Amino acid sequence: MRRSSLQKMSVDDLVDLFAAIGVAQDDACLEGDTTKYNRLFRKMRAVAEELKQRPGDQRRALHRLYAFDNMQVRLMAAKTTLAIAPIDARILLREIADAKWLVQSLDAGMCLWNLERGVFVPN
């Protein structure tokens, strides 16, 4: 995903793209397609970086995805907003971990574990 194309998008469009990528990640995970998932992860990271670079760090706009109907989208929104909304993001990560929703619950639990031990420091 080219940075120049992301720069032309509105914050709302970037949030919608982030959600669409998350849904596609979930599908790739269910299909066992690691290559596709990794490619989508890089695209999502580019979207998150574009939001971060916007005045006022617009990653906060991802907060609206905390109630999204797809667990992968909620997980990635929480992880992406840890640096700017640590309390809300941790609450959502705990909810996901407690949901026992296979892959996403494990990911959320490991994220919390790494945060508590200082292995992972959000930026």
Rank of each mutant, 00 (worst) to 15 (best):
M1Y: 03
M1I: 05
R2S: 13
R2K: 13
R2W: 02
Q7C: 00
Q7N: 03
S10K: 12
S10P: 05
S10C: 04
V11A: 11
D12M: 03
D12N: 14
D13H: 10
D13T: 09
L14F: 03
V15Y: 06
V15C: 07
L17Y: 03
L17H: 03
L17S: 05
L17I: 02
F18I: 06
F18T: 03
F18Q: 04
F18A: 06
F18H: 12
A19P: 06
A19Q: 04
V23L: 14
V23T: 11
A24I: 00
A24R: 13
A24Q: 14
D26S: 14
D26L: 02
D27I: 10
C29R: 08
C29K: 04
C29N: 06
C29S: 10
L30C: 08
E31F: 01
G32E: 03
D33T: 01
T34K: 10
T35L: 07
T35G: 07
T35Q: 04
Y37D: 00
Y37A: 03
N38T: 01
R39E: 10
R39I: 01
L40N: 01
L40A: 02
L40S: 00
L40M: 04
F41G: 00
R42L: 11
R42F: 10
K43I: 00
M44V: 01
R45D: 15
V47G: 00
A48Q: 08
E49A: 07
L51N: 02
Q53M: 03
R54M: 00
D57Y: 02
Q58P: 01
R59E: 05
R59N: 05
R59K: 15
R59V: 06
R60N: 02
A61H: 11
A61G: 03
L62M: 10
H63A: 15
R64A: 08
R64W: 05
R64G: 04
R64H: 09
L65Y: 11
Y66A: 14
A67N: 09
D69I: 03
N70W: 05
M71H: 05
Q72W: 09
V73E: 09
V73F: 12
R74H: 09
M76I: 04
M76Y: 12
M76V: 06
A77T: 06
A77D: 05
A78P: 13
A78C: 11
K79D: 10
K79I: 15
T81R: 10
T81W: 12
L82D: 09
A83K: 08
A83C: 06
I84M: 02
I84L: 08
P86N: 14
I87L: 09
A89R: 08
R90Y: 07
I91D: 07
L92D: 08
L93F: 14
E95H: 12
A97Q: 13
D98A: 14
K100M: 07
L102Q: 11
L102W: 12
V103Q: 07
V103K: 08
Q104K: 05
S105E: 12
S105P: 07
D107H: 12
D107E: 15
A108C: 04
G109Y: 14
G109L: 13
M110Y: 13
C111R: 07
C111F: 01
C111Y: 02
L112D: 06
L112G: 04
W113S: 10
W113V: 04
N114M: 14
N114Y: 08
N114R: 15
L115V: 05
L115G: 05
E116N: 13
E116R: 11
R117H: 15
R117K: 13
R117P: 02
F120Y: 15
F120C: 01
P122G: 06
